[in-house]
Design a protein around this nucleic acid. Structure first.
Length: 197
DNA sequence: ACGGAGATCTTCT
DNA sequence: GAAGATCTCCGTT
């Protein structure tokens, strides 16, 4: 089942939790490239100082404000595209960042995109998985509630709370005073080797 | 195993 | 003009 509009209209933190164990699917040249989502991060509203949405509407963050369920692709350090999905009702700048997946389908193609690397290093980070799945700025605003855009998330299997760990966000710090620093913003599958460091 | 620096360029101040 | 939701490579331990 492809996750639809109602799912993405929920709170970003609930979605980040639920997406652990779900299947991210990318169709490229009629081939399915997919993986189990093993790490996510939530970015909420105007009060979230670490979120791009904090500064109000800008040309870049516009997808965060629009209809939930659309992809928000963002370039970091001039080199890496990060995949987010807009969440919560339209008008609120929220999103969930997909930080890592465990490859399931299309391993050989992912290896081509990432170079000859051990499987373990193909998709274990937000900038790496987009390279492996050939996702970039061209896919910004793709509607992920339908399959036409070649990018969506499928319900796979339910993961129990006991298998999930949470923690603070990664790669951020100085913009984030308490209590944001200590709240859980990141979810990952306990013990999974593809979780980023 | 760990740490530091460079890559590379868009965005917002 | 500086920083950034990252990754890789090269150095030293």
């Amino acid at each position: 089942m492809v996750y639809g509009r109602d799912f993405y209209t929920q709170d970003a933190r609930d979605i980040a939790r639920t997406l652990i164990g779900a299947r991210l699917v990318r169709v490229l040249n009629r081939e399915r490239l997919s993986g189990t989502i093993v790490e996510t991060e939530a970015y909420t509203g105007l009060d979230d100082l670490a979120s791009h949405g904090r500064a109000g509407k800008t040309a870049r963050n516009m997808p965060m404000w629009e209809t939930p369920g659309h992809a928000y692709l963002y370039l970091v350090y001039g080199m890496y595209w990060l995949l987010n999905i807009a969440c919560e009702p339209a008008g609120q700048p929220a999103a969930v960042l997909i930080r890592a997946i465990e490859p399931v389908e299309g391993l050989a193609t992912m290896q081509l995109h990432r170079g000859a690397r051990p499987e373990r290093f193909l998709t274990n980070g937000p900038g790496r998985l987009t390279i492996a799945l050939s996702i970039n700025g061209d896919m910004n605003r793709t509607d992920m509630t339908i399959t036409d855009g070649g990018l969506w998330i499928e319900q796979a299997h339910t993961v129990a709370d006991t298998q999930i760990e949470t923690g603070p966000r990664i790669g951020l710090g100085k913009n984030v005073p308490e209590p944001w620093l200590s709240k859980p913003w990141r979810w990952w599958l306990k013990g999974n080797p593809f979780v980023s460091k």
